[in-house]
């Protein structure tokens, strides 16, 4: 038996490691470094109904133990992604998760329906938490009623399992998690980036052209762990955990806090091989801490 195997709604994963949305494009670039069949799954960059150019540059800034980004959901639109990007990934034996975004309920439905029709993606990650676009995304991610509504509509628009990606930029993330679970979400994906800002001293102005950006990297890991730990105790649907993971010990920490699988984002930029390297050492790290399988670890860190 494969000790790394994880079974989630719509996803039979050979291991719990997947690159996070927005940090891996549509896989092509990293396929030049290693075989994408090694990955548990691949979460594609966000898709919207039409193509989007995104924000002005600079779009990234380094911070202590992390980075800020404000890309602004740049993507060629769902039709083009299906035509030009999905076929490349579909050749691998790695499930594809499509991250979907929009600025209206209708756009979310349209993108979900379009992916559903092709039968080439295994699940949807519902992006209601992008902090970097003016319309859409975040307003659905900060109000439990709106979050439930978009979850319900997307569930009805497609047969695919839906993992709702939650924003940490809320007062009560548990309320958000419960709201989307009641609305039919099959799983959660958490956490998205934390909104932040950096001022550039020479120009005396915000460094990012968008002024604010989403903070990611090891700096946000304790926030992610805390939020997953809290949410795990109030929902029963699986959680794909993310936020600052750079090594296999971090993965174990996320699993102990209650995540069922994990996604790795910013760390890919520093080390393009981070995902396969973690997969390689994960069995030994599990064993070192007294576990035989990933399955066995989930939620073991929660004190009752």
């Amino acid at each position: 038996m494969n000790p790394l195997h994880v079974e989630l709604p719509g996803l039979s994963l050979k291991n719990p490691i997947m690159p996070a949305s927005g940090c891996f494009g549509f896989g092509r670039e990293y396929s030049e470094f290693y075989d994408l069949n090694k990955l548990g799954a691949i979460i594609m960059k966000a898709a919207t109904g039409e193509s989007r150019f995104g924000n002005q540059t600079p779009r990234v800034a380094e911070t202590a133990s992390g980075m800020l980004n404000a890309i602004g959901l740049q993507n060629p639109g769902v039709e083009s992604i299906l035509e030009c990007e999905v076929p490349f990934l579909a050749d691998y034996e790695t499930p594809i998760i499509a991250n979907i975004a929009g600025s209206s309920l209708e756009e979310y439905e349209h993108v979900a329906r379009t992916f559903n029709q092709t039968g080439q993606v295994a699940a949807l990650e519902l992006n209601i938490s992008c902090p970097n676009v003016k319309e859409g995304g975040i307003q659905f991610g900060t109000d439990p009623v709106m979050a439930a509504r978009v979850t319900d509509r997307v569930k009805k628009a497609s047969d695919l399992p839906v993992y709702v990606k939650l924003s940490p930029n809320v007062t009560d993330i548990t309320a958000m998690a419960k709201a989307v679970e009641s609305a039919g979400a099959d799983g959660l994906s958490m956490i998205n980036t934390l909104t932040g800002m950096q001022i550039h001293l020479p120009s005396r102005k915000p460094l990012l052209a968008n002024k604010t950006g989403g903070l990611s990297g090891p700096a946000i890991k304790p926030v992610a762990i805390r939020m997953i730990y809290e949410v795990r105790q109030h929902v029963s649907i699986p959680i794909i955990g993310m936020g600052g993971i750079t090594n296999a010990e971090d993965v174990l920490e996320f699993l102990l806090a209650g995540a069922n699988a994990v996604a790795i984002g910013t760390a890919n930029f520093q080390n393009p091989f981070v995902c396969p390297e973690i997969i390689e050492v994960l069995p030994a790290v599990l064993e070192r801490y007294g576990f035989q399988s990933v399955q066995e670890v989930v939620g073991k860190g929660i004190l009752t």
């Binding site: 940090c23 494009g25 990293y30 960059k45 540059t57 779009r59 800034a61 890309i71 890919n268 393009p272």
Partner: peptide
């Protein structure tokens, strides 16, 4: 010249119209 993220073309940080 531009501030870059991944440096390999995956993150869309350093685009030019």
């Amino acid at each position: 010249e531009e501030r870059m993220g991944c440096g390999v073309g995956a993150c869309f940080a350093c685009v030019i119209p």
